[in-house]
Design a protein around this nucleic acid. Structure first.
Lengths: 199, 199
DNA sequence: GCGCGCCTGCCAAACGCTTGCTCGGGCGGA
DNA sequence: TCCGCCCGAGCAAGCGTTTGGCAGGCGCGC
């Protein structure tokens, strides 16, 4: 099937994907039109189809690159034998990865239903399952070794934490009020210790 | 100007708003078409304009009702003199309100940029400011009275917490794995104490 | 109690516009 | 001469919205 148009290793193509990603990150995938992407590149909308066979191909490229990156970080973090250290590595890895893939995150947040319903994007569900399993494993291990609270619900905690991690990326550049490090430190502190003062 | 079409106190109109809200909650505001709303009501798309002068009017009705509800809960919660109790009341009030207005939340999450850019929806920014102020006030009070950690950043913590609260509503009915009470209890526990076990 | 006007609720058929996408052709560098 | 890259023009489909009209019920004057 490939290359229908331009080979994937074209520099021009990668540049266009990057431009489209900026727009997707701001407005979401469906809300961004191919004409806007073309305008950003200084060409006409029809000319985009010399490089991609559809708008979804651009989204596919961004999403698959993102998930590959996320999973690589998770797999490495999961090698740590200490659950607390593993979770901290997962958090820091996630934050770093997300800041590199703001477009993909916005797409997943806004148009998850749209993508996950299509067979083409079936890898989204697969990847999500692995992400969940990684979290649940570490949380369960930490609970069983007495490191975490005994009444901790690993799956519920994962669901909360995963979505929490995705949040700061949305406002990472709107106001430069906090640096990435400040955010992740504040988050880790909240996660491990809560907001209550300890004597 | 009003009533251009049907009076606001019409029962039929309220029913249509409710139907549209269900669709908005699932697909977002912009992704839902007036034809889909009409189909759900068993009428033609044009007939909707006998009740509303635009699609945005339906959104307006849902959003303003939501924010009125949220602010009422926050104002009542803020009367508590104990910061920890006030925050717990804010959290519980938010959870209850959000479960009653899933459509509005989805609309704000997916199409915030779209709405907040329009003068018609200027009250969104106003309400958000009051919400932020309520959170920051309570967090600051708690920190100054030694109840919360001295190194707590009220604004950063607010930004995290506000978005965290909005999360569970998104998956409140996808899987009935947890009840609303379980979620809010888990959230409060996480918020106050973190995940670490205490001797 | 009957006709009349009015109101609510909806239909049928479009309108102007935007969407993602197609296709033949041209241009410049290798 | 080829090939990567783009133009110019346009298509079908879908979008929110408008318009004119019709059916039925309710109240009011006579």
């Amino acid at each position: 099937m490939w290359p229908v148009t331009t080979p994937k290793n074209s520099g021009r193509r990668a540049h266009l994907v990057s431009l489209a990603g900026d727009l997707f990150a701001e407005k979401g995938f469906r809300a961004t039109t191919v004409r806007e992407i073309a305008d950003a590149a200084g060409i006409l909308s029809g000319s985009l189809y010399h490089h991609f066979d559809s708008k979804e191909s651009i989204g596919d490229e961004l999403l698959s690159a993102f998930l590959d990156d996320v999973l690589a970080g998770y797999r490495e973090a999961a090698t740590d034998t200490d659950p607390r250290a593993a979770i901290e590595r997962i958090v820091r890895s996630s934050t770093a990865t997300l800041s590199r893939h703001r477009a993909a995150l916005t797409m997943l947040q806004n148009d998850w239903a749209y993508f996950s319903a299509q067979p083409r994007f079936g890898y989204l569900r697969t990847a999500m399952k692995e992400i969940e399993q990684t979290w649940v494993d570490q949380l369960t291990r930490g609970r069983e070794t007495g490191l975490f609270r005994a009444d901790l619900d690993p799956r519920l905690t994962y669901r909360l934490l995963r979505d929490i991690l995705w949040i700061p990326t949305s406002w990472s550049q709107s106001k430069g009020a906090w640096t990435n490090d400040e955010i992740v430190d504040g988050l880790l502190r909240l996660l491990f210790d809560g907001i209550t003062a300890r004597p």
